[in-house]
Design a protein around this nucleic acid. Structure first.
Lengths: 146, 146
DNA sequence: CAATATTTTGCAACTATATTGCATTTTCCT
DNA sequence: AGGAAAATGCAATATAGTTGCAAAATATTG
C-alpha cells in the first residue's frame, strides 16, 4: 500500500488550502488520492479504520465538505442517495462519471469530453455540465459476460 | 387550473398500464402531467392537498415507483438527495435535465441531444447516458440579473 | 347480486444519510 | 509556552425512503 506517498501528497495539497493540516484531513485526502473510484463516507470510514485511524462520522462529513470547498475533492451524487467523493488533483474540469450498476462504484473518466451540442432553450443560464454514464465497469462486465 | 383535463389524460394513460386505476394514481399522475418541472414527493403531496386530496407518504412512494415501472413517469436524482418525478408521455428517450441552483427545480429538456463523443475506455459496458445541466432557470435568471 | 380473491392503501416502526448545537480538544501563531 | 481560532466528538435531530402487516378497496366469479 502506497499510503505514505499518498499522505505526503495529501499534506502538500492541504498546505495550499485555507485552513489547518490536521491528521483527519490528511488521512481522508490520502484515502481519496489512493482510490480508483469515488468513495462514499462509509467506504472512507472503513478504509480509515483498516489503516488504524478512526474519526467521528460528523467529522468526516465536515472534512469532506471542507475538502470540496477547498477544491481538492469533488462530490458526486449517486443512485443510492449517498454522496461520493474523490480527490481533484488537477484543475477543475468537466469530466464524466461512470456509475456501475453491479458494484455501485463511481469512476471518474477524465479523458471523456462531453462534446455536447448545447442548444439550450432561451433564458437558461448554464453554469455546469454533469455527464453520468450508467452501465457495468470493466471488472463487473467480465463477471457479467462470464 | 386544467386539473380535470389532466385527470382525463391520466386515466387514459393508466388504462394501458398493468394494474388498477385508483384515485391516488390518477391524482398523482395528473399532478405530474400538469407540472412544468420534475417534482419531489413533498411537492406532489402539497399539490395534492391543495387540490383537496391526501394520501399516506408510503402510498405516494409506492405509487411513484409503480408509475416509473409502468413507464408513465420517470425519476431524476437531484442535488438535494431527493428523487424527483415527472410524467413521461412520449417514448422513453435520452433527454437532459436542467437543475436550477436558485429554485432547485428540475426541468426536462426534451430537445437537447447530447451528441457526445463516446470514447469510453475499454471494458466499460455503457447502458445509459445521463446529462445534467446546472445553472439558473429562465425565471431565476431574470431575478438574478435584475 | 353476493362471496371470494387480489390488489392497493394506511399505519407503525425502522433504516440510512446527513445536519446542528455545544462543549472539548487540537492546531497555529506570536 | 500561552492564547486565539479552528477542528473534533458527542448527543440529538432532520429528512428521505423502506418494510411488514392489517384493513380497505377493487375486481372476479358463481
Amino acid at each position: 500500500m502506497a499510503t505514505e506517498l499518498m499522505a505526503q501528497e495529501a499534506r502538500a495539497l492541504l498546505q495550499q488550502a485555507q485552513g489547518r493540516v490536521t491528521p483527519t484531513r490528511v488521512e481522508v485526502l490520502s484515502i481519496l488520492l489512493g482510490a480508483k473510484a469515488a468513495l462514499s463516507h462509509q467506504e472512507i470510514e472503513q478504509l480509515a479504520v483498516q489503516q488504524g485511524y478512526s474519526f467521528d462520522r460528523v467529522t468526516l462529513y465536515r472534512t469532506l465538505d471542507w475538502l470540496v470547498e477547498q477544491g481538492v475533492a469533488h462530490k458526486v451524487n449517486s443512485a443510492d442517495r449517498a454522496w461520493r467523493y474523490n480527490a481533484q488533483t488537477e484543475t477543475p474540469h468537466q469530466h464524466a462519471h461512470f456509475h456501475c450498476r453491479q458494484c455501485e462504484q463511481v469512476f471518474c473518466l477524465e479523458q471523456l469530453q462531453p462534446a455536447l451540442l448545447v442548444s439550450l432553450p432561451a433564458g437558461y443560464a448554464l453554469e455546469q455540465v454533469e455527464l453520468n454514464l450508467h452501465g457495468y465497469c470493466p471488472a463487473c462486465s467480465i463477471k457479467h459476460a462470464g
